[in-house]
């Protein structure tokens, strides 16, 4: 859920979504869901000469599984907050695993 929450903070920001087929779409992030599917508006394909198919497309939905990267604008990203959130997420998923019955090794 960490990155779902993170992308919710990015709604309204300009992002560049790079797909696994190398198509890169620049646009404003409109919404995101738990699968990290994205809705983008005011989109522009980065290399229009190579990919002229999308010239008339202004809004689109991108399936999360075809995304390779999302380029973000650094000032909109609170890196300290992200790192804290990542540590908390790591701990909470670990605790969920510990809740399963298994014998914990003795602490040295």
């Amino acid at each position: 859920m960490l990155f779902y929450s993170f992308f919710k903070t990015q709604v309204g920001q300009h992002v560049t979504v790079e797909l696994k087929n190398d198509l890169a779409i620049q646009g404003v992030l409109e919404s995101v869901d738990q699968f990290l599917n994205f809705k983008l508006k005011d989109i522009k394909v980065v290399d229009e000469e190579r990919y002229p198919h999308m010239l008339s497309v202004k809004n689109c939905f991108v399936r999360g599984s075809v995304v390779r990267y999302v380029q973000l604008s650094p000032p909109t990203v609170d890196t300290a907050l992200l790192q804290d959130a990542a540590r908390r997420e790591a701990q909470s998923t670990q605790q969920m695993q510990q809740a399963k019955p298994n014998v914990a090794p003795p602490v040295a």
């Binding site: 990155f3 992308f7 990290l36 995304v67 990267y69 999302v70 380029q71 604008s73």
Partner: peptide
Amino acid sequence: KVPMLFVRGDG
């Protein structure tokens, strides 16, 4: 170079 990048884990 990219200043800030999200990378999807399946790759």
